[in-house]
Amino acid sequence: MQNPDLFPHIVTVGLTGLLVRFADRLTDPANRAALAFRAAVDAESWPGVEETSSSLCATYLRFDPLHLPHAVLQARLHGLLAGQDWYTAAAPQGRRFWRIPTVFGGDLAPQLAEAAALAGQSEAEAIAVLTNARPRVLTLGFAPGQPYLGELPEGWNIPRQSALTPQVPAGALVVAVRQFVLFANASPTGWRHVGQTAFRCFRPEAADPFPLRAGDEVAFYAITPEEYDNIRKTDPLGGGASTEPIR
């Protein structure tokens, strides 16, 4: 639990943004608070609020200050914050559980052994832990639709690399600091590449281009390289199935 004298608090972001911060670092209660508070703001449907989003431990609002002055919006936010303990708020409705097929290790994900060793596990033990986890989408960021997921067991509080991997492909599952990132695009990274999926996190041709949403939960289940090749050839969405809702 955060110090109540410090959090939550509201800070301005330029002329058109406000940020409601629930912590200065990721914790599970702070992330849950950010998700629940964003949902509550959306439910209010305040005229002048044009966009909301959530980060690891904050809720962001973009608004039109010509129609909704800063002072008015801040007063409304303070009132909403005072209405309950957001660190123990129920999870938002409409979250989904995804199962995403993943190749762990081998040529497609060459840093599994290194990551497992840092976590004090064999490759087989690491795969068991990572496939039994059900991490939450903490936030989307860095690239369109790209999820940060966590938190993994404490043993997976492994550091980032000291140097960048020049590029991992789209669909790469990487790990560090008790989190997964599922890459939306080919990109350099300092996180270790432990799994490879065909899942498309960004679908610009779709009405909803981001299939994963903050608050969703995900399980990555192990498949063979041959199964991965078949998914790539036959499924334009890259595998993955969801159920709705979850509690």
Rank of each mutant, 00 (worst) to 15 (best):
A184S: 15
G14F: 05
D235Q: 07
L112F: 04
P169F: 06
Q74I: 15
P65R: 08
G238E: 07
Q93L: 15
I246W: 02
A33E: 01
L164K: 14
P166V: 08
T189F: 03
Q84I: 12
A124T: 14
C57A: 14
E151M: 11
Q161S: 13
P153W: 09
I158N: 05
A116I: 05
V168A: 04
Y148P: 00
W86P: 00
V72G: 04
R62I: 11
A119Y: 02
Q167D: 07
E217R: 15
Y60M: 14
L130G: 03
H9T: 07
H67R: 15
Q84N: 04
P159R: 05
A30R: 09
W46M: 13
A82L: 07
A75I: 02
R62D: 10
T189Y: 03
A124M: 07
L112P: 02
W98E: 08
D107C: 00
N3T: 08
R99P: 00
L237W: 10
D28N: 10
L130Y: 00
L149D: 05
V181Q: 13
L80R: 11
A198M: 11
S187M: 09
T16D: 13
S54D: 08
L112Q: 03
A43G: 08
D42T: 06
A33S: 06
R136A: 13
S122P: 01
A207H: 00
V181F: 00
A39N: 05
C57I: 05
E154H: 11
C57R: 13
V20A: 06
A126K: 03
S55V: 10
P159E: 10
G239M: 09
L152K: 02
S54Y: 04
V137N: 04
A207F: 12
I223D: 09
S242Q: 09
E123T: 12
T165I: 15
V129W: 02
L182S: 10
R203C: 07
T189C: 10
W86Q: 06
D24S: 15
W86G: 05
T131C: 07
A207S: 13
D216V: 08
D107Y: 08
R25H: 15
